[in-house]
Design a protein around this nucleic acid. Structure first.
Lengths: 248, 248
DNA sequence: CAGTGGTCTAGACCACGCG
DNA sequence: GCGTGGTCTAGACCACTGT
């Protein structure tokens, strides 16, 4: 492992991290203004801001435009549970109150979406755009795509609450044979960054989920976007037999 | 979804992305120098660099210090296959030649590691630090931790090639009952960034893997770091019965 | 050596939140 | 209006790569 020279950014980030860890700045508290910190560390504001970006990416600090930088209270992590066992709230372990708003649209499959759902382009789909909030804070963004014939008419009424829509979907869905989830890191799009109120410079956890029924048909595809500074995805695989008997 | 004003960074990133997509700049080719692009777009170099960071995070462009920015050839993605079915090369689908170097160390469990392996602190562990290269390019970093009594003496000889070590480990390992993988995004540490030759401003995919045998003992814990601009993790869950019968 | 990207400066100006 | 963070400028200087 190579040991590079610590940059000013890293030095400042380390020092601030220590101030938080030792309780000199407490959870929920506001940090001194960026201009103040910059003069304290005798660096320019861009440099100080890049140090804050490190702590932000670690989930230690949260920036709020116009208000300041705040030490995040712990245990506000978002956990996505993989395996598609439950579809409640796109698999978030909802400890606090989560409110979800859904926008339902009929669209045509095209490009990547057609591939994912294994349908021909222009084939009709229903898109559920789910935005969940934890109190005031945006939490996650989920786009669920389902072939139209698997969507009951009742679910299309926009007035239905989120739970109702999902229950409808689950009832109509054939038994699943396989759930396939791809996890990657990318920067948020402009829309995602401002919708989720996250920095457009910080990565998001992007999860693509594909659910296939026993007939080999893709009954649902979902694109999830979780803020990278507080999200993690957990996947558990159980073995009933020796793992070396499995195919590869 | 909120529609913000596109920043200069986004405008430039969009334009460059288009130049790559339409083949005006071809895979493998070098982009014009940053100073040149900056004057072309009439922005300052930091602004131009932040636009390049977007493309870099998308995996379209690769920066090489002292040489330039290059359009990445496609299909150089790193795929981590979850579920722990195979331990060959830490689950990378190795299309090109992958060379892996291993450093074996005996350490004591402490802190997070003791929790992960469910052993008491100071309990002896063997660390396998695996750095894999794809040709000249660093590829991924894996730290595997195994309780010492599960490691055959032969595996500790540093002269053993990577394959030999892993085969030894697999032979001694009891049948697995569960593999649990946590995926998250974080910034690389200074060491990781320079070892993997990635920007310290771009997120990495961090995977924590915990393997438990049928007796409930954790037989292996692994920390994987994959460059966020190239990597994705795939998890596949198969159902033999209806998914709604499964426990939560 | 020349050319490239990497880090940093010391500001300017704009957008947001709150009184 | 004032204080906050967000974006951007027009450079300087250092580090890496190749000749």
């Amino acid at each position: 492992m190579i040991q590079p020279v610590p940059s000013r950014r890293d030095t400042i980030a380390d020092d601030l991290r220590d101030r938080i860890a030792t309780g000199r700045i407490k959870p929920g508290e506001r940090l001194p203004a960026e201009a103040h910190l910059a003069s304290e560390y005798r660096v320019s504001t861009p440099t100080l801001r890049s140090a804050l970006a490190v702590l932000q990416a670690e989930g230690l600090v949260e920036k709020v435009h116009g208000k300041g930088n705040f030490v995040r209270r712990p245990l506000q992590r978002i956990t996505y549970v993989g395996g598609g066992r439950t579809t409640r709230d796109g698999q978030h372990a909802a400890h606090a109150a989560l409110s979800v708003t859904v926008h339902t649209t009929r669209i045509q499959a095209r490009g990547h979406l057609a591939t994912l759902l294994k349908v021909s382009p222009t084939s009709p789909l229903t898109e559920f755009l789910c935005l969940s909030h934890e109190g005031e804070r945006p939490h996650s963004l989920t786009r669920i795509y389902v072939p139209c014939d698997l969507v009951p008419a009742a679910a299309l009424r926009e007035s239905l609450p989120y739970e109702g829509v999902m229950t409808c979907l689950l009832r109509l869905r054939p038994p699943l044979a396989e759930v396939r989830e791809k996890v990657s890191v990318r920067l948020p799009t402009r829309e995602e960054a401002s919708t989720l109120r996250i920095s457009s410079a910080l990565g998001v956890l992007a999860i693509t989920r594909q659910m296939t029924d026993t007939g080999g048909r893709v009954v649902e595809a979902a694109l999830l976007v979780l803020p990278g500074d507080r999200a993690e995805a957990v996947f558990t695989t159980h073995y009933v037999t020796d793992e070396r008997t499995a195919e590869e």
